[in-house]
């Protein structure tokens, strides 16, 4: 590659960078062929886990598990299990755990927890502390 081509390539990449960084043009890069389906979303991994009571070790149903980089959320099933599709991206991923289903299954404190990439293969167990009236 000669010097002229190198400069040209650098210029092209710079223009791309400027459009990507300083203007609302993300949509320009994630296009859809008029005859085809939309581009993939960026959810490329699934976090599997179980939510349990820190006090009794029993699984808790109806706990909301939210991802931080998108609007997705799921609720734990009868055995406390959940599967949350995420875009993991970097080395760590923050999820929010909330008890929003009333007091039927007990009442638990909210929790933010930072997960590392090992949860994608090993899964995660999350322990929630009970919430008392004065909390």
């Amino acid at each position: 590659m000669n010097m002229f081509q190198k400069i040209k390539e650098k210029k092209q990449q710079l223009i791309r960078f400027l459009f990507g960084s300083f203007t609302a043009t993300a949509l320009m890069f994630t296009f859809q062929a008029c005859y085809g389906m939309p581009p993939q979303n960026d959810l490329d991994a699934t976090i599997q886990g179980t939510v349990k009571s820190a006090e009794t070790g029993e699984p808790i149903q109806g706990i909301t598990v939210c991802g931080t980089r998108n609007d997705l959320f799921v609720q734990t099933g009868a055995n406390g299990n959940f599967q949350l599709p995420v875009h993991f991206g970097s080395d760590q991923y923050l999820i929010h755990i909330k008890d929003e289903d009333g007091t039927e299954n007990g009442s638990y404190q909210d929790l933010d927890t930072l997960l590392d990439a090992s949860v994608l293969t090993d899964g995660v167990t999350i322990l929630l502390e009970k919430r008392y009236d004065n909390q």
């Binding site: 040209k8 092209q12 223009i15 791309r16 459009f19 320009m28 062929a33 005859y35 085809g36 581009p39």
Partner: peptide, 16 residues
């Protein structure tokens, strides 16, 4: 400007 630049780069992003 953006379109001209993308045309010069012409990366194959979508293959039927």
């Amino acid at each position: 400007i953006f379109r001209k630049n993308e045309t010069e780069i012409h990366e194959l992003n979508y293959l039927f």
